[in-house]
Design a protein around this nucleic acid. Sequence first.
DNA 1: GCGGTTTGCTTCGAATTCGAAGCACTGATG
DNA 2: CATCAGTGCTTCGAATTCGAAGCAAACCGC
Lengths: 164, 164
Amino acid sequence: MSEPRWLNETELRAWTGFLETSDLLHRMVEQQLREVGGVTTVQYDILHRLNESPEKRLCMTDLAERLVSSRSGITYQVAQLEKAGLLRREDAPDDERRVLAAITEKGRRVLETTAPGHVEAVRAGLLDSLTPDQVAQLAAIMDATRARLRDTVQLHPPRKARSR
Amino acid sequence: MSEPRWLNETELRAWTGFLETSDLLHRMVEQQLREVGGVTTVQYDILHRLNESPEKRLCMTDLAERLVSSRSGITYQVAQLEKAGLLRREDAPDDERRVLAAITEKGRRVLETTAPGHVEAVRAGLLDSLTPDQVAQLAAIMDATRARLRDTVQLHPPRKARSR
DNA sequence: GCGGTTTGCTTCGAATTCGAAGCACTGATG
DNA sequence: CATCAGTGCTTCGAATTCGAAGCAAACCGC
């Protein structure tokens, strides 16, 4: 086992900066969404996915895949959103097992009233701190990293484990 | 209220890429630390802070400030780490109210055995996907963003709230 | 020194997340 | 059809996080 290649000063700044920034950004956005729309980031994300889907509805598993969370987590949050009247649960017509989450008019209104401030928060927290060049650099960097991570990171353990 | 400045394609890539990447990276690192050291990211972070402090010990509030978490969260995690024998709680000699967390020999060993793999995970997940130029760009971008966010984001509500 | 405020930490209850296990339906196989 | 594996979702218990409230020690003004 060879000596590990420790991080040099720049690498360390990139890494710790990334950690702290992502944490701060997340908190900032959470705060803004909470105040203006009364929803959490996860809930906003769910509503957003539903709204951008052509049918304005998605089944639970599809939702869980698009977001990062587990199926049981989606069940919980969809229940919260249903209680709040921001979405409706429907049985899928073709498959009795499936449950569809469909955004309601009220849910759409929450998105509409929240989105502008959300975008502003993203600008204030991230984009406005950067030059246009840096924004482009960041986009490229994230594309590269994301592509690699998607292949590497195993999100949920397979159901009936049978690796390879 | 003017029309919001929606994100253009590059800005959107930067933002969503950042969100997804930070999530994936966090999971990846979490997985690695769990497997090799049997600790969570938060716990690793606590041990790391203790170890890099000159006295090898910090009081709870200082810990909470360095990490991002709340004081009660630190209480919980320090209790977990103490149960595992990775740190010891001591009364501060000069101030009866304070509790110091001091890393133990066992805790130091966990850091030593975990650190190389941790660094490798960071490289594999982030740095290896980038050119040296991009690493430098990322560091600069994170510096700029972090500086601004530190001033903007209010981490914990003031104790005796007295706004303005 | 004394009373009131502040500070440091813990305890409590609520919210959220996860994976494992369970239930119900589907679809393939004979 | 009858069976049986696979799929979609929910329920459960455990872990973690937070803020509010509570407790004790320390500090400040007099």
